[in-house]
Write a protein that binds this DNA or RNA. Structure first.
Length: 465
RNA sequence: GUGGCUGUAGCUCAGUUGGUUAGAGUGCUAGAUUGUGAUUCUAGGUGUCGGGGGUUCGAGUCCCCUCAGCCACCCCA
């Protein structure tokens, strides 16, 4: 029997899983810091819950089967549809506005490509049950904090409001073909204005004049103030469009007031995304160093999340971090430290009669919040150090008969090769000191979060809780 | 789902117009060294040539199918 995995499904080895878990931990911490609460929902749903919401294309990508009881079952392909079902089903028990985050795998039977798999993880956060622009603003701030906490500084959150596009299209008499027009517009960067105009004419049924008017959007430029000013005449006289613009203006002003530099939060009138259910503010986030990889965190506002399941009107806004895409980007930017262990310290099993001492020492370190492993076999010291090196431990503790007889222990810094002999009561302090040094100058330079609350997520090993 | 490229040791790859027993680097294991890794030296093993079928005296090499990966299209609710 050949061991193998399905197309688009992956195993995650420790070297990949350790940074993956750190990223998840970071997202979780940031979401919680804004008051979002965790939820979970089943991987499987009744098929009819999942189908019909997103059109034929998404239905095709749905993993579906009949269970042993004859039920038609589907695997969730995003976390938004399950959220809609969830809030409709539990509306009575939820306190509105409801803020939740949900980090879980989803499945899509689409063709694979680099960074695109059939099983992948989404990290969503949403605020349901309020129309207030404050929620739109907060969503932008969460995205900003999240990217910073992960370790990026050079990134751009592009923001727009779908109502501006809708207002413009209504003024042009194109509201009936909005989806097709926006789909074409979305390709602007990729295929250029001529081809976009051609697609609008052929596929969306626009006139050449209308297509040209829509493409005026691509000529808008300048800083946020200038862009907003140029949008003004395009929506003037259309109530929806004017509302979108004023909301966008409010959002931009508030995000700036909250301290986000304007180069990271940029109005882009061409961002349309989520053609099916987004109705207001929309976000996409690009990495300055790798714009081609696409948006790593996207989302927006929807007027009525759960209309398929309840009569109750449930507006919401949220966004989703593309975990796998982001990991691919971080890999490419050399932001990921390759280690095979989450522990920082290896205690050598050096003297075979001294296992109890080693276990006691390990317990002391763990009580001090330091992750530590005792090598399981009394092999030759050279081999144990080789193991420590390969797995990426930062420190080895070496204590043979000589040291232990004097109540001492050798703390070996595996990065520098330096050895320090200290008494057993000083070991925790010395280990902390060496780890701190590594964090100061051993980390990957470049795009690093200098830390909120003095805490670093991607530093080299060490002081994790 | 459609089209293109690729698949040889754990990894990166070489392998002549089809010709005997398929190679290199790296890694791995052990030793040199019963107390110090990442840099040295020595020895050692590994392959259903992605899988199946076909053409041929003979296939890693040519043909068909299939699986997987990468790229583009489509799509990304």
């Amino acid at each position: 029997m050949q061991p193998r995995t399905l197309k688009g499904f992956r195993d995650h080895l420790p070297e990949a899983m350790i940074p993956r878990e750190r990223l998840i931990d970071t997202a979780r911490r940031v979401y919680r810091s804004f008051g979002f609460s965790p939820i979970d929902t089943p991987a499987l749903e009744y098929l009819d819950i999942l189908t019909g919401g997103g059109g034929a294309e998404s239905d095709k990508q749905l993993y579906r089967f009949e269970d042993q009881g004859g039920r038609q079952v589907g695997m969730r392909f995003d976390l938004t549809v399950p959220l809609a079902r969830f809030v409709a089903q539990h509306a009575g028990q939820l306190v509105m506005p409801f803020k939740r985050y949900h980090i879980a795998n989803v499945w899509r039977g689409e063709n694979t490509q680099r960074g695109r798999y059939r099983e992948f993880m989404q990290c969503d956060f949403d605020t349901v049950g309020t129309l207030s622009v404050a929620a739109d603003i907060e969503t932008g701030l969460v995205i900003h904090d999240l990217l910073l906490a992960i370790g990026f500084e050079g990134f751009t959150i592009r923001v727009n409001n779908r109502k501006i596009l809708n207002g413009l299209l209504a003024k042009l008499g194109l509201e009936g073909n909005a989806a097709a027009v926006l789909r074409a517009l979305d390709k602007l960067a990729k295929i250029g204005p001529e081809k976009v105009a051609a697609e609008m004419i052929e596929v969306a049924g626009a006139s050449a004049e209308q297509a040209a008017q829509v493409l005026q959007l691509s000529e808008i430029g300048g800083d946020n103030e200038a862009v907003l000013a140029q949008l003004e005449p395009l929506v003037a006289g259309n109530e929806i469009g004017e509302e979108g613009l004023s909301r966008l203006r409010e959002t931009v002003a508030a995000v700036a007031a909250a301290g986000v530099p304007s180069e990271r939060f940029v109005v882009d009138p061409l961002i349309a995304r989520g053609l099916d259910y987004y109705t207001g503010t929309v976000f996409e986030t690009f990495l300055d160093a790798l714009p081609d990889i696409g948006s790593v965190c996207s989302g927006g506002r929807y007027d009525n999340l759960a209309e398929r399941y309840t009569k109750q009107q449930l507006p919401g806004i949220g966004a989703s971090l593309g975990l796998d895409r982001l990991l691919a980007a971080m890999e490419e930017l050399d932001m990921i430290e390759r280690v095979g262990t989450p522990a920082s310290v290896l205690i050598a099993y050096f003297d075979k009669t001294r296992l109890h001492d080693y276990l006691r020492l390990a317990a002391v370190l763990r009580a001090g919040g330091i992750a530590v492993e005792v090598f399981p076999e009394p092999k030759k010291l050279g081999q144990q150090l080789k193991y420590a090196d390969k797995k990426g431990f930062r420190i080895a503790l070496v204590a043979g008969e000589d040291e232990l007889a004097g109540g001492r222990c050798q703390v070996k810094d595996l990065t520098s090769g330096e050895r320090h002999e200290v008494s057993l009561d000083e070991v925790v302090g010395k280990v902390r000191e060496v780890l701190a040094e590594g964090q100061r100058d051993g980390g990957t330079e470049g795009q690093r979060d200098r830390g909120t609350e003095g805490q670093r997520d991607w530093g080299t090993g060490g002081m994790r809780e």
